[in-house]
Design a binder for these strands. Structure first.
Lengths: 137, 137
DNA sequence: AATTTAAATGCAAATTATTTGCATTTATCA
DNA sequence: TGATAAATGCAAATAATTTGCATTTAAATT
């Protein structure tokens, strides 16, 4: 995928931080916090505030989606990644991707029945429980 | 529902704040923030910190579930309420309950296929989009 | 009913996450 | 190459949540 093009298509100026942010997100197998993204931005080394702003703008343009794992901070992942959901350990935070998404019919059905909404931009589906390590304790 | 009994069953001391918190949550049609719960606690008038602690303890015992609407603070609702999910407006925050939950099979299937998890305590499913008022603008 | 005790609460202060204001720099376009 | 609007950095503000510690209270025991 061409990050420069992605940025241009979304009316963003092509800056080193934004390019590297896209790269970092695309390489990550799990949703990342702002702090985690920031630490991976070794080439551009932007200010933490800049990372907040970049990700916020990406979210607004639906380039990334926000994932809430009920930790103490938001997580983000590229929207371009395959639709999937997550298993989250409520004790240690351990995370597992659940590949594939069988929710699209349900989403459409929900919208069809709604009187306030006629379209959607995305959805989140997280499953909480104890991972095998935490069950032992 | 008998709130005193609910508290005792969960090894909580029966205090005015906890009783009223359960009452307030049970009367609410939408998930509430800590601040909103606090403002409704007119009889017991506890400190805001106490509300944080009460809800945290309730969550630990699965009396309430946390709902993330991607606003700037967490929301909570009684677990006893029917399993359902939410339509959330990404612009104005407008919220609509989607009654019923057809996700249990999917949750069980996900767990069956997982190597790290063998059980779950709950799940969240939120659908994001623009409500009809915000679409107009 | 009075006494004991662990748990619950209040208050002040700390911590963490996120945002804002403003001055400076930089990507883009004429 | 120069002009300009957007992007960035830095300091400080705000918002959400947590912690420490002293005091109060529910409930178990006498």
């Amino acid at each position: 995928m061409n990050f420069t093009q992605t940025l241009k298509e979304n009316q963003f100026k092509v800056t080193p931080s934004r390019l590297e942010a896209l790269e970092v997100l695309s390489l990550s197998k799990t949703p990342m916090t702002i702090e985690q993204i920031w630490q991976k931005l070794v080439k551009s080394q932007p200010n933490l505030v800049t990372v907040y702003r970049i990700i916020k703008d990406f979210k607004q343009k639906d380039l990334v989606r926000q994932v809430d794992l009920q930790h103490q901070h938001a997580h983000f992942e590229l929207s371009a990644k395959d639709d999937h959901h997550h298993l989250v350990c409520t004790q240690c935070g351990r995370l597992e991707d659940v590949p594939g998404c069988q929710l699209n019919d349900l989403v459409m059905q929900s919208v069809r029945r709604s009187s306030n909404f006629t379209s959607t931009s995305g959805h989140n589906f997280e499953i909480f429980g104890l991972c095998k390590d935490c069950v032992r304790k």
